[in-house]
Design a protein around this nucleic acid. Structure first.
Length: 110
DNA sequence: TGAATAATGGCCT
DNA sequence: AGGCCATTATTCA
């Protein structure tokens, strides 16, 4: 199975089951380079939207899950927020946290 | 400083 | 047409 982003992107492009808005969300999400994270609001703003909820919900309802790197999307605070695995206080994937922390020194150190 | 509430913008039923 | 959401920002204490 191809786990390449290009494959996923292509799949999004051919998917007419979704709206243009969702398509932009997924495409922008796939546009996020590895090791980088983006907040719902920022992603929303990129596609010309002001509602982060719409983006978040689109990801929740994403028909491409988990092929789409929704794990790169985090809250503005840098927290994972609540994607799959937000089981009542369950420990979120530490990798996600590290990913979020990765972007912090970039903004501060630089 | 910390927590809670309001506003927001689009998607789903 | 109404409710929902994985957020964000602002305001109150």
């Amino acid at each position: 199975m191809e786990c390449s982003v290009e494959e996923i992107r292509k799949r999004v492009l051919v998917s007419t089951n979704i709206t243009e808005f969702q398509r932009k969300v997924y495409l922008e999400l796939l546009n996020v380079p590895r090791g980088e994270t983006i907040s719902y609001g920022e992603l929303a703003r990129r596609i010309g939207c002001r509602s982060a909820q719409a983006v978040g919900q689109a990801l929740k309802r994403n028909p491409f899950a988990p092929d789409v790197p929704c794990h790169r999307v985090i809250a503005y605070d840098g927290s994972i927020g609540g994607f799959e695995g937000q089981r009542k206080g369950e420990t979120i994937d530490k990798k996600q946290r590290l990913l979020a922390a990765e972007r912090l020194p970039e903004l501060k150190g630089n």
